[in-house]
């Protein structure tokens, strides 16, 4: 069986700083594999059988190959990078359409399409479900656990106020809704395997989409304007040894705002 895991490369938001004007400093910020994507991949690897294949796929600029190498280090078998200048400016709909075109042409036999529910740089949380709609397959959101049952799969979905355990038919979309705070570190096997790995690179023509179906031209949303929100902060440091007095100060300060 083949599992296709769609991943995303994102700026490491832990490394983003704020300058004196309150603007984000993005220069020099390293890119990482999105933690939601990483969890989706690791959970998929857990249920992989001996004859199964796990393929990592991303859409992005050429440097997104680093995120795919990270997937290989973590245990994925193969990877695809969907990259074309024409994809620039894609919103969630154009992204989903591009990924669905890839799946239709190169991975229509996948037993599961696995996603991180959202990404730390966008938080839109729409791509997995738009992809499912385009592929006309079932979708399972907020998944926290995935296991095999006979020839199929079982997913545990956490909706916040209740959890649901559902049988997942083959060919469905599964979107993991959380990240692993402890993360994972590749093992030596994966590290050595990834050293020689080059992802398969596909462009717009390879996935069979027209110019007006992708990128900014294929997007339904347009950004009208953006603005930076300035929030006034007041910091105070108090050295105090008595916890009850410290609590009083916090209550008083919180009440005065």
């Amino acid at each position: 069986m083949r599992f296709v895991v769609f991943v995303k490369q994102v700026p490491d938001t832990m490394s983003v700083t704020v300058d004196e004007d309150g603007s984000l400093v993005r220069a020099g910020v390293p890119s990482i594999l999105d933690p939601y994507s990483e969890l989706a991949l690791l959970r998929t690897l857990r249920i992989r059988g001996d004859d199964d294949e796990v393929v990592a796929v991303t859409m992005g600029p050429m440097q997104a190959a680093d995120a795919l190498r990270r997937c290989i280090e973590l245990g994925a078998d193969d990877s695809f990078l969907i990259s074309d200048r024409d994809f620039a400016g894609a919103d969630t709909w154009a992204t989903s359409r591009t990924l669905a075109a890839y799946a239709g042409r190169y991975a229509c036999d996948a037993c599961l399409y696995v996603f991180g529910g959202r990404a730390i740089d966008g938080e839109t949380g729409q791509v997995p479900f738009e992809f499912a709609a385009l592929m006309d397959v079932q979708q399972f959101a907020y998944v926290t656990e995935l296991s095999r049952e006979g020839d199929g799969f079982v997913a545990v979905q956490d909706y916040g106020t209740f959890t649901r355990t559902a049988r997942v038919p083959k060919g469905s979309v599964v979107a993991f809704g959380n990240v692993d705070p402890n993360g994972s570190i590749p093992n030596a096997d994966g590290y050595l395997r990834a050293r020689g790995h080059e992802p398969h690179i596909l462009n717009r023509i390879d996935v069979g989409l027209g110019l007006y179906s992708v990128g900014l031209k294929g997007s339904l949303t347009r950004i009208a304007s953006t603005r930076t929100v300035q929030s006034a902060r007041r910091n105070m440091m108090v050295e105090i040894t008595d916890p009850s007095k410290a609590a009083d100060i916090i209550i008083r300060e919180a009440g005065s705002r």
Partner: peptide, 16 residues
Amino acid sequence: ASMIWCGRGREDQGRM
């Protein structure tokens, strides 16, 4: 080899 963590970069090495 599967029981050897192998980290490169600030993040992985920092965690190790």
